[in-house]
């Protein structure tokens, strides 16, 4: 099982999502992608997209206004 961290701190709204989509393509099933974000908008669309696509998603608030979206590739 591989674990990849994607640093999207300071990136505005669509960028974390596009980067996460690209990064997830290269992973195998069961691998985990951790997206670090501090843009509240990405808090909504990254998990929503990943759930919609059928992956397992968790959100963790690391600090005030800083989150990690943990995506386990499921398919």
């Amino acid at each position: 099982m591989k674990e990849v961290t994607l640093d999207c701190l300071g990136e505005a709204c669509p960028v974390p999502l596009v980067k996460a989509q690209k990064a997830l393509e290269d992973l195998a099933i069961g691998d985990v992608l951790i997206v670090s974000i501090d843009h509240s908008c990405a808090m909504k669309n990254v998990p929503e997209w990943a759930r919609e696509a059928g992956h397992n998603v968790e959100i963790e608030e690391v600090d005030d206004g800083e989150w990690e979206v943990v995506i386990e590739k499921a398919k």
Partner: peptide, 11 residues
């Protein structure tokens, strides 16, 4: 897992 839960995904 439901939003905000922790520990479901092994890391």
């Amino acid at each position: 897992p439901a939003t905000g839960t922790t520990g479901g995904i092994r890391r």
